[in-house]
Design a binder for these strands. Structure first.
Lengths: 230, 230
DNA sequence: ATAAAAAAATGACATACATCATCTTTCGTT
DNA sequence: AACGAAAGATGATGTATGTCATTTTTTTAT
């Protein structure tokens, strides 16, 4: 279980960091990062930042998943991304100069480090490797979202659900997917009831198994086939 | 009418440039840009680059609009963006290191300048202003796409059409919108037939006027209302 | 000017999905 | 352990939108 206090995580030993943008060629900057970051414990459902506010810094996920979502006109959430350990989130709005277009909320109890805007921009300016990493990340996400938009526009809900499960299987690194039906529906872009029915179908087809809230993927190949063409 | 030859456009006098990322604090770099760019004439429907290929450089639109689109599993186009004069396109994949996730095609006869990958990356490295502009642009687009995804997931086709027309009114800077019904449908994310019917509805409601292929916006306020809530 | 090709328009029809209402199960708190 | 609240599940119903087929209009090329 996670320590409930403000646990200070050392960047030097942080496992999550090694998979992050702070990984390569970063040894000489580690102490700087170490000094300027602060760690906090986020309870499940606690927001990191909220759409419409201005960014104060970036968040580095040490432990726990975070949903990144926008709200439609009726307030319904559309989950854009589910971030896992090692990811750095919230930097988009720091470069665009405008407010957050999305919100981020902890999906489970989490350990998250914070680096202030000034410190982060400083590091970007002085560290070309980090900067290139950020630019690569921005670009990669931009490509991902083009695909996301296309899937939204052209795939059926069933296909999108299959695609979402494949993505989530990776996010949860083989662990069982642990999301409320509502969050899953808001990721796929459908009504909760529809999602529940389609999950049941997939279960009956032997593609997944449902353990109450947790979803286990049984037949990934079939899932990919469903997600793919018609 | 546009000159059909390889017209060399001078960056110094290029009107489009002034609205572009190459605008601010760029005087001392103008000659460099001038030397390293090449101009070409693109015929309507001529591709600039194609999904799956690797980027060779960036394209700077001097005259003429360009559609940026992805293809779904069945090959159907999903238009992600319609670029107008002054925009620079195709740089995403240069930073991500991977292939284009989208294609770009001239929507009309166009004058487009090209800057090779090496030259462009060079400029990025040595010119912080340009670099920041690029980062701002990447970030802004990323935010736009979060909204795009949300609209796709939550709005009706009619609402999306209204939203698209508002965007296009800006792209065409008050000129009449000039797109095939199919392209418009592929931007809105719907079937061509559905789009045609909804356009007719809007016309009957006095919101737009249809001059064969060209669309004129009559009542923008009403359009915004339709695009907005329910 | 005319033919051929592409785009636009219209109608008929089928269905995937949203919505609303209700019920059951699970979870979190005291 | 027990209560209330949240999450999950199921059924009934309506409709927005996709699909297919055909016709009309516009554009392009010879």
């Amino acid at each position: 279980m996670l320590d409930k206090s403000h646990k200070h995580v050392s960047c030097a030993t942080c496992q999550a960091r090694k998979k992050s943008l702070f990984s390569a060629n970063f040894d000489e900057n580690l102490s700087h990062l170490e000094e300027h970051k602060s760690c906090s414990y986020f309870k499940k459902n606690q927001p990191l930042f909220i759409e419409g506010s201005f960014p104060r810094g970036v968040y580095c996920l040490n432990q726990g998943k975070v949903k990144v979502f926008a709200r439609g006109d009726e307030g319904k959430e559309q989950i854009i991304h589910i971030a896992k350990e090692g990811e750095i989130i919230g930097f988009r709005a720091m470069f665009s100069g405008d407010m957050y277009k999305v919100s981020a909320t902890a999906l489970e109890d989490a350990n998250i480090c914070f680096i202030s805007k000034d410190d982060f921009l400083d590091m970007i300016d002085t560290n070309p490797t980090l900067r290139n990493g950020i630019m690569r990340e921005l670009s990669k996400e931009l490509g991902d979202r083009a695909v996301f938009i296309t899937n939204m526009a052209q795939k059926s809900v069933r296909e999108r659900l299959a695609a979402a499960l494949i993505i989530l299987d990776d996010v949860y690194s083989g662990e069982q997917i642990n999301l409320t039906r509502e969050d899953l529906a808001n990721f796929v872009g459908t009504a909760t009831e529809t999602l529940i029915r389609l999950l049941k179908d997939l279960k009956e087809e032997g593609v997944i198994d449902i353990h109450t809230r947790k979803l286990e993927i049984i037949d990934k190949d079939k899932l990919m086939k469903i997600a793919g063409g018609r």
